[in-house]
Amino acid sequence: MKRLGSIHITALTFGLAFLYLPILLVVIFSFNASKLVTVWGGFSLHWYGVLFSNSAYLEAALNSLKIATTAATIATLLGTLGALVLTRLGRFPGRQAIGGFMLAPMVLPEVILGVSTLMLFVSLGIERGLLTVALAHATFGAAFVLVIVQSKLVSLDPNLEAAARDLGAGPVQAFLLVTVPSLAPALVAGWLLAFTLSLDDVVVASFVNGPGATTLPVRVYSAVRLGVSPEINAISTILLVVVSAVVIMASLLQKQALMRDQR
């Protein structure tokens, strides 16, 4: 690896500090014994204890996990189907348009996504709750899954399935025994990404959630409006650890899959 000069190191330090210092402060102050958010009063796990005895937060966290799991699963199914349609069916009229529509949620402002899905649920008379949030999250999760799975599908040898069929597997068997396992790293990476996206979301969730379906980020957001409490630092730290772990896992899986292709 190239050795870094002192200027590089200084620049890198400032850059990283700019990005991560606020987050680091949150983590540090989550272990603060003091009740004041900005004054250090010694190390303590007090606020984590308070957090875990607060049933409202625990319920919200459970909601978030349920929603993220459901949303990620639906997103993975939809995104994979979309990727298969876009890569396997060849050219058909409207292919470009479908590809564009599938990716739109990636770039659409979340407010618009939230309002439009809310209007859809209201006009269909669907009662808002955990399922509506999961469905809304699945729409943009699917776009990310599609991109990840599509890039893997494109690099996959189109003769793999043909070889499986030639060796005696029926079309469904060939897909399940050869294509799905070859896509597995991409499927898992896509699922994990959709999971964290759902876990992170405030805007869309605050539009489409209903009574009893408040997610953790929404709960945190409304609590912060009443002032930042040390509890919030603790909960942020936990979220941070969970999300980073999942994202790192997802990128490792993707890297592993790509490396296998390159050999």
């Binding site: 040898d157 003769n159 793999l160 043909a162 070889a163 499986a164 069929r165 030639d166 060796l167 005696g168 597997a169 029926g170 079309p171 060939a174 050869v178 396992p181 070859s182 597995a184 296998r260």
Partner: peptide, 20 residues
């Protein structure tokens, strides 16, 4: 007759070995 019912086998140019 579909390929999986033919007593004929093929070796592909790309080999098409199952990577997993």
């Amino acid at each position: 007759l579909p390929p999986h019912k033919r007593p004929i086998n093929m070796m592909f140019q790309s080999y098409a070995l199952f990577p997993h």
